[in-house]
Structure formats: C-alpha cells, structure tokens
Write a protein that binds this DNA or RNA. Structure first.
Lengths: 117, 117
DNA sequence: CGGTTAATTAACTTGATGGCTAAATATAGG
DNA sequence: CCTATATTTAGCCATCAAGTTAATTAACCG
C-alpha cells in the first residue's frame, strides 16, 4: 500500500482500465454498472478498481437510491501536473532556464573519465 | 508486467524511491552507487528500481569501465504530460476547448491495447 | 596473477494486486 | 413481504512487487 499521495495517484493511474474509467467520468457522473459496461471483467473487479481510484481521491461517490454515482475529482491530477512541471523544462526548449541545466549535464559527461568516487 | 507504455511510465513513477532517483538524475548523470547512497536499502534493491525505470524508458544507461552511468530520458514524461493535458481543463476553467477535449478522451477510451514500444 | 571496486543475478520471503464466483447488503417498487 | 436491481464483501487463487543475503560477472590496477 502506497504511503504518500503522489504515489497513490500514480499507482491508481497505472492501469488502463482505471484510466478508461476516468476518461468516462470526465464526461460526467456514472454508476458502477455504467462504468463496468465497456469491460469484459466482472462487476466486483470494476468495484475494486473504483476503490483504488477512491483511495487515491481521484473519484468521489454519492448515493442515490441503490446507485452510487461516481464523479471525477481533479485535485490529484492537478497535484501530479505540478510535480511534472518540475521536469517540464527537460523537454521544452526554454533556453532561459535550460541553459544552466544543460551546461551542468555537459560538464558531467565531459568529466566522466576523471570520475574516481 | 504492464502492457502499454503509459501504464509502464505511471507504474515506474508510483514509487518514492524511483521518483527520488529521477530527481537526482535531473541534475546530471550518476552511477548506481551514487544513486543508491541516499537510501537505506541494499544495492540490489536500487538496481531493481533502475531496471524498472529503464524498462519504462525513463532512464538510459551507458558503460564506462565498471561504472554504468544512468541518464534521465524525458520522453515518457513528455508523453505523460500530454495525457495529463487532456484533463488539464478540468481544473483550469477553459471550457472553450471542451469539444476537442471530449474527442480526445473518446480516443483514449477506444485505444485499449496500444503497444507501440 | 590476484585483489578491489562496481553492478547484476540468483534464490528466497513477504505481502499486495487483480481477477474470479458466490454470497451478502441496500434500496425501490409491486 | 417479496422480488428485482445495484453494488459490495468474502473467500480463493495466481502472479507480481519489493526487499533481503549470497554468489557472480565485469573491469581496473598494482
């Protein structure tokens, strides 16, 4: 079981079924049966996936009679986006901030023959 | 073993040790021993983490004498950023692009078994 | 050659994941 | 009350994840 929220988010997203469920929920609330319909797996299996998503706070659930509509909660995705932002300049060519980084990398590469630690 | 590249990326990132390794590599190449130093776990454990990162193509490795310097490869992070971008307007209030957004999500839902590794 | 350092592989343990079927719970409605 | 529908829980199983220690490979150096 993951400890920190970011690990929890990433783990929950690291499954195509769960990402497909999120994609469906991005269009609006849906019940468990509606969410399970596109998949070949059993309903309890989908229920488990939903529990993983709920644990990661990527979805929330309300109650309406015997239905438990699920709703997408974007907060963890926003957090993930923030984490990714720290690395974004690695692939964006933003020279203002990238130059120092690349220079450091180049130095590392050039001094590889002198490495002795 | 994950099937599609995005699941592979997310799974590799869903571990604090592996994310810490990436954070270290963002500052430049490093050997396995250098990467293992901050952690209390054994060297083989770190080696396994590196293999996971390598399988996800988040790092690449070269050879220099008995050292195997690791290097961060940002491509999968960029892909993840692209995937996340489909959801970005859920927390940014940009409903003007909602149609494109929904279309993209529909594509994501349909591509259940992508494997273009 | 022999020894040291770097890193991986092998073998094993522990616990979690992801799937199933069958049973249980909750609610609506006749 | 009884039944149908929606969903979860309970067992069960196979596989995998993440760590360990011990052994192995690979390369340098005196």
């Amino acid at each position: 079981m993951s400890l920190d929220p970011l690990s929890n988010t990433l783990f929950a997203l690291a499954d195509p079924t769960r990402r497909a469920i999120l994609a469906r929920l991005a269009r609006g609330e849906a019940t468990v049966n509606e969410l399970a319909a596109p998949f070949e797996m059993s309903l309890p299996a989908v229920s488990k996936h939903l529990k993983v998503l709920e644990r990661a706070k990527l979805i929330s659930r309300s109650r309406n009679a015997q239905w438990r509509p699920c709703r997408l909660e974007p907060a963890p995705l926003k957090t993930l986006d923030g984490w990714l932002g720290d690395y974004r300049l690695l692939w964006e060519h933003r020279l203002d901030r990238l130059e120092d980084y690349l220079a450091t990398l180049q130095i590392e590469r050039d001094t590889k023959e002198e490495r002795n630690d």
